[in-house]
């Protein structure tokens, strides 16, 4: 009987109208745009979950240190880059009618080896993220480091990208070529 009946998506109460056979429910539910989103702010403390359109207001109101800058081409100046231990620099960039979350993360991936990871996430679905690309550029004295990719969606998170080094990765010795007065300047360009 179950094989012949169509079941509603798990997130039907949030507005999803999809109905599928029981055996095929798992895949679309994973990508369902009505699935609650977790707070994308790095750090282990926030347990907030909610709909996609509530993510940006949540970040703005509950994580007040995250500031927003308008424009598709900006300079992200991470201050006090030499601070030891696990540190995050987070901001939002607003352009093309969307918000992007920019994260620079310093962490120890291997014992005694600190690395920086920089990544851009779209506060939107995976499908929406596919229509954008971003470029991160570090410029120092006669040196330039560029990373170009498609932004991740906040639906996916960044843990896998960091684990697979699928983002801009550089270590502390390389960072020093691009640091001035303790600040690291990253030019972030988003295009459609």
């Amino acid at each position: 009987v179950a094989k012949s009946v169509l079941f509603p998506c798990k997130y039907a109460s949030s507005g999803c109208e999809l109905t599928v056979p029981h055996a095929e429910k798992a895949a679309p539910e994973k990508l369902c745009k009505f699935r609650p989103y977790s707070c994308p702010c790095p750090g282990p403390f926030c347990r907030w979950q909610g709909p996609l359109d509530a993510v940006t207001p949540h970040l703005t109101h509950q994580h007040k240190f995250i500031r927003t800058l308008q424009g598709d081409d900006i300079f992200f100046i991470a201050t006090d880059i030499h601070l030891p231990g696990a540190v995050n620099w987070v901001m939002m960039q607003s352009c093309f009618g969307f918000h992007f979350l920019l994260i620079l993360k310093k962490q120890v991936k291997y014992i005694g080896h600190q690395q920086f990871f920089a990544i851009v996430q779209l506060i939107g679905t995976r499908k929406q993220a596919e229509s954008f690309s971003y470029q991160l550029q570090l410029t120092g004295c006669k040196r330039r480091l560029i990373w170009e990719a498609t932004p991740r969606s906040v639906q996916e998170g960044i843990a896998t990208a960091i684990m697979n080094s699928d983002c801009l990765v550089f270590d502390t010795s390389m960072a020093q070529f691009f640091t001035e007065g303790g600040n690291l300047v990253i030019r972030v360009t988003i295009s459609k």
Binding site: I74, I77, D80
Partner: peptide
């Protein structure tokens, strides 16, 4: 066409207790 310098923003570090949590 005039070149407009991109806007800049200073982003302060946020130090979380991740390290402590990993050590526990």
């Amino acid at each position: 066409r005039t070149y407009r310098m991109p806007k800049e923003i200073r982003v302060e570090p946020q130090k979380f207790a991740e390290e402590l949590i990993h050590r526990l």
